[in-house]
Design a protein around this nucleic acid. Structure first.
Lengths: 224, 224
DNA sequence: GTCTATATTTAGATAGAC
DNA sequence: GTCTATCTAAATATAGAC
């Protein structure tokens, strides 16, 4: 509390070292699986300093998780509300942005999804994800692209799920895919770079194919 | 060890009650997040009985995880080696089977993927996933369908990742999707049933679109 | 087989010297 | 701000009565 921003930025402050280590260990092992001692070791600092700087394991986790969610979702907001790009351009931007992010931090999706599973209301609500997505400009563009009237909202959601899945799933499944296909980290990464070109094509072909409204359960009547 | 199979199958034996409870709690909270007390409570039995029957938390977990992996992957093996079904039929079978399984146990994918992340070699190796997939009949069918020669193996993997992702990702993302789109469990489930018809269509359109080999990083030279 | 009581181990947090 | 030593709480595991 009485702590101010460090004046010099030579090498990372102890506080910063701990945060960096915490991010890494929490992402790898999850909250329950992480020992505070692991974080201290990873940071190369004394265990007692964690409590000195962050009060408790839980507070440290909340801090990291908040920052992580922000990193993951904030860039999205500007992108999906940009009124100057076409749907196709947005898909390409989206793809580039997320694949680059996830190549640098592959554990991000499973980390976030685990947290949301443990605590569904908590953080997703704080990010106002529902409002952000529902009120977005991209949603209008999606509707127009699909022909507006006769396609139910559930069809839209199905498409969006596929798009997010194509970007995110390979990283969630990374350890499994590496095993199944005997991939090195380099090969996996090269494949993810390829995806920057491929995902927009797959999206395109998904949208250009005619969709039969009868495929969708209309009774449930989902309204966005 | 000295324990034999129960003769009568009236109501679940204590051992079975514990296993069932363990499955449920481990799937929901993960290994580290689970307290043995939670399992005992969930099963409605005394805590000491867990150790009486299963020796330790870890042994109980290994047992559950082994069974879970078997459930998830064994049905796959017969299906992908069936020489009497076309690729299209396989895709439909695959879809039906996995969506039904996952609707009844939505936590399965994230549970398994978490475990593999914590312990990548361990269980996936015991299931021989690499051998099973590489030697499968379906892989030949995929190659034929794609025109055999000029498509690199990495393209095949990309496709397979998409297929698995379309089936599995919605369940991994379920808590997040429910938040974003304000879905009830019933609505989510109805959408997953819709997917039984939709996924094969999307796969079809993905395959029927011409693929340009230049989209793939050939240098990495992945060979299955 | 099941229970109560307890031992053991592990992990988060803090006091107090420097 | 940092460290050592220690406290406390929680969770796993077991001993022994029934």
């Amino acid at each position: 509390m009485s702590k101010k921003i460090e004046i010099s930025e030579k090498d990372p402050s102890t506080e910063e070292k701990i945060k960096e280590a915490a991010r890494k260990v929490f992402q790898k092992k999850g909250y329950a699986g992480t020992r505070t001692r692991d974080i201290a070791d990873e940071a190369g600092v004394n265990l007692a300093l964690l409590n000195y700087y962050f009060r408790s394991k839980e507070k440290l986790f909340d801090l990291i998780m908040g920052e992580t969610m922000l990193l993951f979702f904030q860039s999205l907001k500007a992108l999906i509300n940009n009124e100057n790009t076409s749907l196709q351009e947005k898909m390409q931007d989206f793809t580039n942005q997320y694949i680059d992010l996830l190549i640098s931090q592959p554990q991000l999706p499973i980390f976030i999804l685990n947290e949301i599973q443990m605590n569904p209301k908590g953080l997703s609500e704080r990010m106002c994800l529902h409002q952000v997505v529902i009120g977005s400009y991209i949603l209008k563009q999606f509707r127009e692209d699909l022909g507006n009237n006769d396609i139910p909202d559930s069809a839209l959601i199905q498409m969006i799920v596929n798009i997010i899945g194509m970007l995110v799933f390979p990283f969630i499944g990374k350890p499994l895919l590496k095993e199944i296909f005997n991939l090195t980290d380099e090969q996996f990464q090269a494949m993810m770079y390829d995806r920057k070109k491929l995902v927009p094509l797959w999206i395109e072909s998904m949208f250009s194919n005619p969709i039969n409204p009868s495929y969708f359960t209309l009774i449930q009547n989902i309204k966005l």
